[in-house]
Write a protein that binds this DNA or RNA. Structure first.
Length: 259
DNA sequence: ACTTCCTCCGTTTTGCGACA
DNA sequence: TGTCGCAAAACGGAGGAAGT
């Protein structure tokens, strides 16, 4: 007979969040913000999360949007190989892919998509652009070489935006049958003429590093996802990003060289 | 030293009855 | 019918015991 007993939660008539934390018993510290909030049961929260519609808060920039796009993987469940063997090798490490587009001016996330890990980056770019309201002007879309496809260029051209996507090393101009193809050819020619390194400086491609630091911020809120089902995982990521946008809207640091 | 297995326990998900 | 709260099940990570 073990000494283990399931944690008892007394959830009826929680008068406040404080009491909720106290009654869980496992927390040695608790907070007293002087609030008297009723707290839904955790089973209710869990159920609601599956169909939660998260809207990203956005404080708004001043001019046309400069969108920076990138993606990253996030661990979802079942980390160890140990578990894989325990459950007969069927359970592998599961990853989710987060695709985001941020506003270069305000550094707020404007578009987010969550996919399984086997989905490529390029197909998601049009989806991200769709999340930007049609009446908002987009001036520029900056993304890495993985997005260098015809469909991406077409989607960007359809929004009358300028694409900053590095061409491949031996990229050749293709038939200029669409606005996207023409834009791609311009980048190929410019890159040939200037050289790839100079093209990066000339095109301002370096600004893309900002979206990478935003990805880092998302991971600072936790390296892996807590919930287990895909819909809830998407909601969890969207909630994180909504929280980050609130932080970002409070103010961003301005870094200057010393002296 | 290393791997494998097991226990503990916090966290998430589901079953089910109550209630509007 | 849909949602809620409670109880129980399921999941997964930490870490230690046992085996090699």
């Amino acid at each position: 007979m073990s000494s283990w007993a399931p944690t008892k939660y007394k959830t009826t008539n929680w008068p406040s969040y404080n009491t909720a934390l106290k009654q869980r018993g496992s927390l040695s510290i608790w907070f007293d913000p002087g609030l008297n909030w009723a707290v839904p049961d955790f089973s209710t929260l869990c159920r609601r999360q599956r169909t939660l519609d998260v809207r990203l808060p956005y404080s708004g920039g001043t001019g046309p949007l400069n969108l920076l796009i990138d993606s990253t993987g996030m661990k979802a469940e079942g980390e160890g190989e140990w578990n894989a063997r325990k459950h007969g090798g069927s359970k592998r490490r599961i990853w989710r892919k987060i695709h985001i587009g941020i506003d270069e001016e305000t550094l707020e996330v404007r578009a987010v998509e969550v996919t399984s890990s086997n989905i490529g980056d390029a197909p998601m770019l049009p989806e991200l652009l769709n999340q930007i309201p049609p009446d908002q002007d987009i001036e520029m879309v900056t993304a890495d070489g993985a997005y260098n496809t015809r469909k991406c260029h077409d989607a960007i051209a359809a929004r009358n935006a300028h694409a900053v996507i590095p061409p491949r090393k031996n990229a050749k101009p293709c038939k200029p049958t669409s606005a996207g193809a023409i834009a791609r050819n311009e980048a190929v020619n410019a890159s040939r003429y200037l050289g790839r390194a100079l093209w990066r400086r000339w095109s301002g491609y370096h600004r893309r590093s900002r979206v990478e630091s935003k990805m880092n911020c998302i991971k600072l809120l936790g390296q892996s996802l807590m919930v287990r089902d895909f819909d809830r995982q998407a909601a969890e990521i969207q909630i994180r990003i909504a929280v980050l946008n609130r932080y970002t809207a409070l103010g961003i640091p301005i870094t200057k060289p010393a002296g």
